[in-house]
């Protein structure tokens, strides 16, 4: 019988900022007061290379890459889901890597190559990953699908580049596109319709593996 680990349960504390203070102020508690005067302009002008085409933008510094694509370049294929990097609907490819475009400032992408769902294929000639999602019913409502497809393409490249994942058993062996590897690598893309099983089959088809 092993001895217990000594600890003492913490007592609840009385809040310093009382409930009445909350009501009286009725404003959220923010961080310490910050200076309000800016050290420069609050807008910037820069160029993104979107789906192979240079696009000049003059926008508020606060504009995320997602909002630049959707609101300023009218490329609405990339979706806004949570806007906090949790759902993956905004996934695009920047300089060869998938990222959450909602958690990146457009102004930080001067000269970067951005590929969105609009850059992958056309209705006449779908990208193999788009065709695979179509073939396997890899969606229901379709809202998460552009992010799923952009992410899935990058997942296969990451496996080809032998980038390890949380479920990779041997860090020094060649990594295969197994169900387990694909599921783990797609965990940053949420599908609330629950099309996961078909998404997995679609990715296998695009990987050129038996489904």
């Amino acid at each position: 019988m092993s001895p217990p680990i000594r600890f003492e349960m913490r007592r609840r504390t009385f809040l310093v900022g009382t409930a009445s203070a909350v009501v009286a102020a009725n404003i959220p508690w923010r961080a310490n007061a910050q200076p309000t005067s800016l050290a420069g302009p609050e807008r910037s002008t820069f160029t993104l290379v979107v789906n192979g085409e240079p696009r000049e933008l003059a926008v508020d510094n606060r504009t995320t890459l997602l909002d630049a694509l959707r609101e300023h370049l009218q490329l609405t294929g990339t979706k806004k889901g949570c806007d906090h990097g949790q759902c993956g609907a905004c996934t695009v490819n920047v300089n060869g890597e998938r990222i959450n475009s909602c958690l990146s400032l457009a102004v930080m992408h001067q000269g970067d190559e951005v590929t969105t769902i609009e850059g992958l294929g056309t209705p006449q000639q779908l990208d193999p990953m788009q065709q695979a999602f179509f073939d396997h019913d890899g969606f229901q409502c379709g809202y998460c699908t552009p992010g799923q497809i952009c992410s899935a393409k990058a997942v296969l490249e990451e496996i080809r580049d032998n980038v390890p994942s949380h479920v990779t058993q041997d860090l020094t062996a060649r990594i295969e596109a197994t169900d387990e590897e694909i599921r783990e690598r797609m965990s940053g893309n949420i599908c609330r319709c629950g099309a996961y099983a078909n998404i997995l089959e679609a990715i296998h088809q695009a990987a050129g593996e038996p489904t």
């Binding site: 993956g88 998938r98 390890p164 994942s165 949380h166 797609m186 965990s187 893309n189």
Partner: peptide, 15 residues
């Protein structure tokens, strides 16, 4: 490597 891959998502780890 194990700790890094246990955190966040592929998209976030790239950035």
């Amino acid at each position: 490597t194990r700790a890094l891959m246990a955190g966040a998502s592929g998209q976030l780890r790239n950035k």
